[in-house]
């Protein structure tokens, strides 16, 4: 890995911004350079929502994602907007509820029951971002489990640690 450009998109309230912050935090524990940014404004309060993080071995110049190496979409709208015209080696992860057109021919593609796992296996929809982080880390393998765990614990509300660690584990299991 020299440089990863990660974009997480979905609906406001899914906690995807926090998801990118956790990934950035874990990146720092792995002695990487990181740059995290997000969409702001009214659209971040319930509409479509986007968080980005760049993780690199070298100093980061431009801080926005231009050539994504990994895109996750948790809503139909975000899939429609962000999962097309990507480089061949970009990994695309979508929730199983997303309707993917038959002519969608991106090869590096995976569908996982992320929302369902949060809702049913973990039992709390709010953990969807941590389930995602677990799955992403498993796919990209950019952080040790210890470090990603540490990063998660830094950014979840007090009293929800156990629940979120379960979410992380379930997410990792999904992608194994």
């Amino acid at each position: 890995m020299s440089k990863m450009e990660i974009r997480l998109a979905g609906t406001g309230g899914q906690g995807l911004i926090t998801g990118t912050i956790i990934l950035a935090e874990a990146g720092i524990f792995e002695n990487k350079f990181v740059a995290q940014s997000q969409s702001y404004g009214p659209e971040a309060r319930g509409g479509m929502c986007k968080g980005e993080v760049i993780v690199s071995d070298e100093k980061i110049g431009f801080t926005k994602v231009t050539r994504p190496t990994f895109v996750m979409a948790l809503s139909q709208q975000s899939f429609n907007q962000y999962c097309k015209d990507l480089a061949e080696d970009c990994f695309v992860l979508v929730d199983e509820t997303i309707e993917v057109p038959e002519d969608y021919d991106h090869k590096n593609f995976m569908k996982l029951p992320i929302l369902a796992t949060a809702r049913e296996k973990v039992g709390k929809m709010q953990t969807v971002n941590i389930v995602s982080v677990g799955a992403i880390n498993e796919i990209l393998k950019f952080s040790s489990y210890e470090n990603i765990k540490k990063a998660v614990l830094m950014h979840v509300p007090k009293g929800t640690e156990e629940l979120n660690l379960k979410a992380l584990e379930e997410g990792a299991k999904l992608a194994k």
Binding site: V34, A35, S37
Partner: peptide
């Protein structure tokens, strides 16, 4: 806004 909202190490 670019640096204000940017998170990095």
């Amino acid at each position: 806004e670019i640096v204000g909202h940017l998170r990095e190490s």
